[in-house]
Design a protein around this nucleic acid. Sequence first.
DNA 1: TCCCGGTGTTTGGCTCATCAAACGTTGGTT
DNA 2: AACCAACGTTTGATGAGCCAAACACCGGGA
Lengths: 161, 161
Amino acid sequence: MNEVWKKFEQHEPSHSTAHHLMAIHTLIEKNGYARGVDVAKHLNITRGSVSLTLAKLKEKNYVEEDANKFYRLTARGEQIVRSIIQKRLVLRAFFRDLLQLPEAVAESDACKMEHLLSDEAGREMQLFLEFCLSEDPTAGAFRQAYQRFRERRLQEAPSAS
Amino acid sequence: MNEVWKKFEQHEPSHSTAHHLMAIHTLIEKNGYARGVDVAKHLNITRGSVSLTLAKLKEKNYVEEDANKFYRLTARGEQIVRSIIQKRLVLRAFFRDLLQLPEAVAESDACKMEHLLSDEAGREMQLFLEFCLSEDPTAGAFRQAYQRFRERRLQEAPSAS
DNA sequence: TCCCGGTGTTTGGCTCATCAAACGTTGGTT
DNA sequence: AACCAACGTTTGATGAGCCAAACACCGGGA
């Protein structure tokens, strides 16, 4: 009956894959290189685990390593990282700036979902957010009206499910 | 450095757990009962797998079974199901009605994320959606303005990342 | 030169969630 | 009473990801 739910497990990239690729990207941005031990420290897991995981990601053609075991992202890896970064930013902004959730919650929710959001949804969400937070007077009026609506609601029912 | 990302794996409930509980709920709603084989068919997995998984969920006090092996949700299980249903509905409506994504994409994205969204985010999202889709004139104007904004954007750049 | 610290790899083990297949139990038919 | 079909359970296996610990390499002091 239900077929959609199974796609979750096979979802490419997995949460782990996503964060390994993101780690390499971030480390190269920051330090100019990314070795296994750097990835391990960044993700707070062991070198052994990183070694195994990155070997698989190498086979899948997401990452490469040079003669000195320094990791690089392939074009495919870069593409995935770009798409995840876009979704993370959009999700975080949505949660924080539109829904007014605390920074930490916005961050955590965005991190949990960033790799699962479809490309289409990522695009549409960005468009939507762009308009919502724009200087457009309608958008501004909307934000103010929502603000009032929300406060009224929270006063009426401080904790309704 | 990064500590948030690890919460994903330990996230309670897991995707699998969520769908087992949802299956029991749905089947009882529809048929009045839920046996192992019903859950298996509904989730499209084997009876063996269901047997093992539900044994664990019984230990975690999410489900119970009566003398005839008919499953029921405990109060804790019910609570989780309610929270997931709420998030699924909110997410689906957000994707479909606000972002105007195709039904199938909205459904699939909602299913992937429903169990990961925090309660706070679920609540705020529902509030936001309620206002956006309400009869409030400001909300109506906003929807129209966004519609125009979106179409303008899609004409300008039919496929920009 | 010898050794040690930092790094990568390998191995054995663990949990979760799945499968296939064998096995057990039970209730209804004949 | 005998049997079969439906159902639950158990077992051995798989694949992802993780850990700890042992092993392997390599380069820079002393």
